[in-house]
C-alpha cells in the first residue's frame, strides 16, 4: 500500500513541472501540454485524496475535469490551428501584435 503522501508529492512535482513548462516554453502547443499536466496533477491529487478520505466525491470530480479538459483541447487546438494557418508560426514570442 503506497501512502497518500507519496501520491501528493508526485502530484505536486507534476504540477510544478506544468507551471514551469508554461512559464519557460514558447511553443503554444507545448504550453498547452504543460497546462494539461497541471490539470492531471490535480486529478491525481483528487483520486489519492478521495481514497484516503473514503469519499467518492473526489473521484467523480475527476470525470468532470476530464470532460472539461477534452472541451479545452477542442477549443485550444482550433485557436492554435487558426493561428498557424494564418501566421505560419505558433511561437508565442512571435505572436506579438498586442503589447503583452
Amino acid at each position: 500500500m503506497v501512502p497518500v503522501a507519496n501520491y501528493l508529492i508526485l502530484s505536486a512535482v507534476l504540477f510544478t513541472i506544468g507551471v514551469l513548462g508554461v512559464l519557460i516554453r514558447r511553443n503554444a502547443i507545448v504550453i498547452f501540454m504543460s497546462i494539461e499536466i497541471m490539470l492531471n496533477a490535480a486529478n491525481l491529487a483528487f483520486i489519492a485524496l478521495a481514497d484516503a478520505k473514503g469519499s467518492l466525491a473526489g473521484q467523480v470530480f475527476v470525470f468532470f475535469v476530464l470532460a472539461v479538459a477534452a472541451a479545452e483541447v477542442a477549443v485550444g487546438l482550433a485557436i492554435i490551428v487558426a493561428i498557424s494557418r494564418q501566421q505560419g508560426t505558433i511561437d508565442v514570442d512571435e505572436i506579438n501584435l498586442l503589447k503583452w
Binding site: 501528493l8 470530480f61 501584435l97
Partner: peptide, 30 residues
C-alpha cells in the same frame, strides 16, 4: 491576426488559471 492573438492569450492564461483553481479545489477537498 489581432483577434487570433487575443484569443490565444486569453485561452492559454485562462487555462493556466483553471489549473491553479483546480489544484486549489483538490487540496481543499483533501
Amino acid at each position: 491576426p489581432m483577434a487570433q492573438e487575443a484569443s490565444l492569450k486569453y485561452f492559454l492564461l485562462g487555462a493556466f488559471a483553471s489549473g491553479f483553481l483546480l489544484y486549489g479545489i483538490a487540496l481543499v477537498f483533501g
